[in-house]
């Protein structure tokens, strides 16, 4: 087992994939805490479906996937978060509509226009990630890493503002904080994280990567800062275990990581119960 591992880890592309994967998990967990606390979990889910639809379009037109998914998802994020804060429109219905709409359109496009001989294989790969992070090209990996670093920097620089608009948007707005600006920053960063995370775990499992570490940390930790740090550590740890298991046993990367996240959630729930 150790030998298989060290054999694979000898390849530079595996090392790069590991680094990119861990950075992506870190981003997803940082943002996940805010999304869960703002009650935006479903928006994350809808955005991942939008990203899937955009990916289908990119595949059909043979564009670079990221060049299409990133802008489309960013726009969808700003629209969705805007709709949600406008109480006049039924937020959850709009979200569900966009979510399934994008999924259906994406699948239809891939089915009708795809030139590939293995359509269901392609769809499955996009939805569940399979081993895609290990098959990314070097330039993709570099792009992922760069975006992940930018997301982490944005998060650190705006940490206090993100806390304020997450905890009590009304107060923050009343005392002169530009809540709309920071909500849009959160929206854009969310979109970027979702597109990144799709490379790691596939479109359908993105929300798991975002939500589970946050919920797991919230079982045990009680301040915002400790929840953030806890979620980051849990997420990176689970992804590392998941990636290594996937490499050794050849299991699909995305679902292996998510199952590890679920296991961590179960463990922390029990610890939380015992601690009271």
């Amino acid at each position: 087992m150790i030998q298989t591992l060290s054999y694979y880890l000898g390849f530079t592309f595996v090392q790069y994939a590991l680094i990119a994967g861990l950075l992506i998990s870190l981003c997803a967990s940082l943002l996940g805490v805010t999304l869960v606390l703002k009650r935006y979990s479903m928006i994350g889910d809808a955005l991942s479906h939008v990203a899937f639809g955009a990916m289908a379009i990119a595949a059909v037109c043979s564009f670079a996937p990221m060049a299409v998914t990133l802008p489309v998802t960013v726009i969808a994020a700003i629209v969705l978060l805007g709709v949600n804060s406008n109480s006049k429109i039924k937020g959850d219905a709009a979200i569900a509509m966009i979510s399934v709409g994008a999924l259906a359109t994406g699948y239809l496009l891939m089915n009708v226009f795809s030139v590939s001989t293995n359509i269901s294989g392609d769809v499955c790969t996009t939805l569940f990630g399979s081993t895609s992070i290990l098959t990314l090209t070097k330039s993709d990996i570099i792009l992922c890493t760069a975006l992940a670093v930018v997301v982490i920097l944005v998060f650190i620089l705006f940490y206090n503002k993100i806390f304020a608009v997450t905890f009590d948007e009304g107060f923050a707005g009343a005392t002169g904080t530009n809540t709309r600006l920071y909500n849009n920053i959160i929206a854009v960063v969310t979109a970027v994280v979702i597109v990144l995370a799709m490379n790691l775990v596939g479109a359908l499992l993105v929300s798991a990567l975002i939500i589970f570490p946050a919920l797991t940390a919230m079982r045990v930790f009680k301040s915002f800062f400790s929840v953030i740090i806890g979620a980051a550590v849990i997420s990176v740890g689970c992804s590392l275990i998941g990636l290594l298991v996937a490499i050794i046993y050849g299991t699909p990367v995305g679902s292996t990581i998510v199952v590890t996240d679920i296991a961590a959630f179960a463990v922390f729930s029990i610890i939380g119960k015992i601690k009271g």
Partner: peptide
């Protein structure tokens, strides 16, 4: 430059935040 205490603050039941974090967030402006 305005400080504000609303009559009711709707804060989610399960929000993890320490007292110090909340008080400090008043300094944000």
């Amino acid at each position: 430059e305005i400080g504000y205490l609303p009559q009711q603050t709707v804060i989610q039941k399960d929000f993890p935040a320490s007292v110090r974090e909340i008080v400090l967030s008043g300094c944000l402006n």
